[in-house]
Amino acid sequence: EETYEVDGEEQLKKVEKMLRDRNLDVEVEIHNGKFVIRAK
């Protein structure tokens, strides 16, 4: 499992696309105004 923490939606979209391109399962949560992306 990998976890990424990003600020802002633009970064979120980039990271999310990169992970989905690797066929990973992606979950996004918001913690303290930051996006936390978990990939399995």
Rank of each mutant, 00 (worst) to 15 (best):
E1M: 14
E1S: 11
E1T: 11
E1V: 14
E2F: 14
E2P: 06
T3G: 07
T3L: 13
T3R: 11
T3F: 13
Y4H: 04
Y4L: 04
Y4I: 06
Y4R: 02
Y4A: 03
E5G: 03
E5D: 04
E5L: 12
E5R: 09
V6D: 03
V6N: 03
V6Y: 04
V6G: 04
V6Q: 02
D7H: 10
D7R: 09
D7C: 15
D7W: 15
D7M: 12
D7N: 08
D7Y: 14
G8A: 06
G8P: 03
G8Y: 07
G8E: 07
G8V: 06
E9M: 12
E9P: 11
E10G: 04
E10A: 09
E10R: 05
E10Q: 07
E10Y: 08
E10V: 08
Q11I: 08
Q11K: 07
Q11E: 14
Q11S: 09
L12N: 02
L12C: 15
L12F: 09
L12T: 00
L12K: 08
L12E: 02
L12V: 06
L12P: 01
L12Y: 09
K13H: 11
K13E: 08
K13Q: 10
K13G: 06
K14Q: 11
K14S: 07
K14I: 14
K14M: 13
K14Y: 12
K14G: 04
V15H: 02
V15T: 04
E16R: 13
E16M: 15
E16V: 15
E16W: 15
K17V: 07
K17Q: 11
K17E: 07
K17S: 08
M18F: 13
M18W: 15
M18R: 04
M18Y: 12
L19C: 14
L19K: 00
L19Y: 08
L19P: 00
L19N: 01
L19F: 12
R20Y: 06
R20I: 05
R20F: 08
R20T: 05
R20S: 05
R20K: 09
R20C: 12
D21M: 13
D21S: 12
D21F: 11
R22I: 03
R22C: 15
R22P: 01
R22F: 06
R22V: 00
R22Q: 06
R22K: 07
N23P: 01
N23E: 07
N23M: 08
N23L: 09
N23D: 10
N23Y: 10
N23H: 12
N23Q: 08
N23V: 03
N23A: 06
N23I: 02
L24T: 02
L24V: 06
L24E: 02
L24N: 02
L24H: 05
D25P: 04
D25E: 14
D25I: 14
D25G: 08
V26H: 04
V26W: 15
V26Y: 15
V26K: 01
E27M: 12
E27N: 07
E27L: 12
E27K: 10
E27W: 14
E27T: 14
E27G: 03
V28S: 02
V28W: 07
V28N: 00
V28P: 00
E29S: 13
E29L: 12
E29R: 11
E29N: 07
I30E: 10
I30R: 09
I30T: 07
I30K: 07
I30P: 04
I30C: 14
I30N: 08
H31A: 09
N32D: 10
N32G: 10
N32K: 06
N32F: 07
N32E: 08
G33R: 01
G33I: 02
G33P: 02
G33C: 14
K34T: 05
K34S: 07
K34N: 04
K34F: 09
K34Y: 12
F35W: 11
F35A: 02
F35M: 08
F35T: 04
V36F: 12
V36I: 14
V36K: 07
I37K: 01
I37L: 07
I37H: 00
R38D: 00
R38F: 07
R38N: 03
R38A: 00
R38Y: 06
A39G: 08
A39P: 04
A39E: 00
K40I: 11
K40T: 11
K40M: 08
